[in-house]
Amino acid sequence: MIRALQIEPVKCTGCLQCEMACSYEKEGVFNPAKSRIKVFNFHEEGRMVPYTCTQCAEAWCLHACPVDAIRLDAETGAKIVVDVLCVGCKVCTIACPFGTINYNASAGVVVKCDLCDGDPECAKACPTEAITYVDADWTGLERMRDWADKTANEQPQA
């Protein structure tokens, strides 16, 4: 069963443990600026919203990449950047309509969530279960998909 990150903003306190866990796992430092998951602060609404790649079926980044540097992990369903192949052209960063693949200037490659080989650190670090790693059917991905449809460059067939 493919699993996915389920994010429930109402539970998020904005502690950024997820950002630190992510950057620590991927970059070896506590550095939210390099985290693949970001918590956005909606101060006026009093809401914190963690957000990262949903590993969407459209895989915009993967399709836009000119050098096949983004691959599908068959086991987790994650779209993974192969650093040695990425030339740093950043086309994927403008192609992804969710803004969840970003250029890391110091490394010269793009970075995105890869689900940590099926054991995501952000979910483990979250103290309030605002981020959990669950069966994909449960994630409310439907809502995400609805929106993805709106963005899609293909009209849904009647």
């Binding site: 192609a95 693949i101 970003n102």
Partner: peptide, 10 residues
Amino acid sequence: ITQHVGAVRG
């Protein structure tokens, strides 16, 4: 600007 620019497209 490099972060989250894809959202502009979205």
